Simulated assay, not measured.
Amino acid sequence: MHVPSILSVLSPADIAALIWLFGCWMGIGWLTEHPPKNHPSVAKLMVRYRHEWMRQFITRQPRIFDSAILQSLREGPTFFASACLIAIGGGMALVGNPERLRQVAGGLELGQAPTVLWQVKVMVALFFVANALLKFIWSHRLFGYCAIVMASVPNDIKDPLAIPRAHQAAELNVTAAKSFNMGLRNIYFALAALGWLIGPWGLAVTSAIVLGVTWRREFASHSRLVMLRDLPEIGKI
C-alpha cells in the first residue's frame, strides 16, 4: 500500500475519528500512570501493595505462597500473548486477501469503500494487538526477573541485603505489572478500532465507550474503594 493512496481514501471524518482514537488511548494511559495526587488510579494503588508484599515476603516461611502468586501473575501475560499471536495471524491473513475482506465487511457500511480502506481499518486494529503482544512478552520476562531476585532475598530482616533486594524485587514487579496493564489497554483499544468497520462515527463511539470503561475501572470502581480502606496502614520498604 502506498501512502498517497491511503491518504486519498480517508475522509476528514475518518481522520478526525483516528485522532480521537489515538488521543483516547494516549490520554487514558498517561492519566493512569500520572493520576492526581488526591485521586490515585488502581494501578498506582497497587504499587503500594506490591511493595508491601515484598516487605512481608522477607520473613515469610515457607515462601511457597509467594511462588504461587508470582506464577499466577506470569500466566496472565502468557495467555494474552498467545491470543495476540492468533489475532495477528488472522488479521494478516484477512489483509492479505482483500477481496475476501471486502466481501465480509461490505455489508457493514453504506456505499462501496475502496479495498485499501478496509485494509487500513484492519491494520489499525492490528497495530494495537501487536503493541499489546510486545507488552505482554516483556511483562512475562520481567516477572521472571522478579522471581529470581525474590529468590535471592534473605529471610533475616537484619541481613543488610534483605531490604535492598526486596525493594529491587518490588520495583521489578511494579514494572512488569505496568507492562501488563499497558498490554490490556492496547487490547481494549484494538476492540475500539474495530468500530471503524461501520464508519468514522462508529470508531468515535467505540473509542469513547472504551475510554469510559477504562477510566471507570481505574478511578471509580468498587475494587478501588476496597484498596483504599487500609492504605494508610501499609508501610514502605
Rank of each mutant, 00 (worst) to 15 (best):
L21S: 02
F127W: 06
P40E: 14
Q119T: 07
S67V: 14
L126W: 01
E52K: 01
P62F: 12
P40F: 06
A151M: 11
V122M: 00
R60I: 11
W215G: 03
M123N: 06
A151N: 15
D66P: 09
A17C: 13
R74Q: 15
G89S: 10
V149W: 09
R63S: 08
A68N: 06
R217F: 03
Q61N: 15
I19F: 10
N155E: 12
L45C: 10
A190K: 06
K135W: 08
G29S: 14
W138C: 00
A113I: 10
M54H: 07
V95H: 00
L101Y: 00
S207W: 02
W118S: 00
I15R: 13
I58S: 04
V153R: 01
R102C: 04
S221R: 10
I88G: 08
F180L: 15
P114R: 04
A193H: 01
A125L: 03
R141S: 05
A176R: 01
V3F: 07
I6F: 08
A16K: 03
I163E: 01
S8K: 14
A176K: 00
A43G: 10
P154S: 06
P154C: 05
R141C: 04
S67W: 11
V9H: 09
M227P: 02
I19N: 10
I187L: 15
A87C: 08
R100Q: 15
G106Q: 14
A162K: 05
F180V: 05
N173A: 05
E171L: 06
L134Y: 03
D66F: 13
L110M: 14
I137Q: 04
V149M: 08
H167P: 01
F79A: 15
G23M: 12
V149E: 11
G76Q: 02
N155S: 14
R229F: 01
Y49C: 11
S152M: 12
G202S: 12
P160S: 11
A13C: 07
G199S: 07
N173M: 03
Y188C: 10
W118L: 02
M54F: 09
A170W: 03
V226A: 12
H140I: 05
E33G: 05
P40Y: 02
L225H: 12
G183H: 00
E99T: 06
V9G: 05
K44H: 11
L31K: 07
Q103R: 12
L10V: 14
F128C: 13
S223K: 03
Y145N: 08
A81V: 13
K178G: 05
A105F: 10
I187M: 08
S67M: 14
L184H: 04
W118Q: 00
Q61K: 15
A17L: 09
L10Q: 13
P35K: 11
F22D: 08
Q112H: 12
A193G: 08
S72Q: 13
Q103N: 07
Y188S: 05
I234T: 04
K178T: 14
W118G: 00
V120W: 00
V149P: 01
Q112K: 12
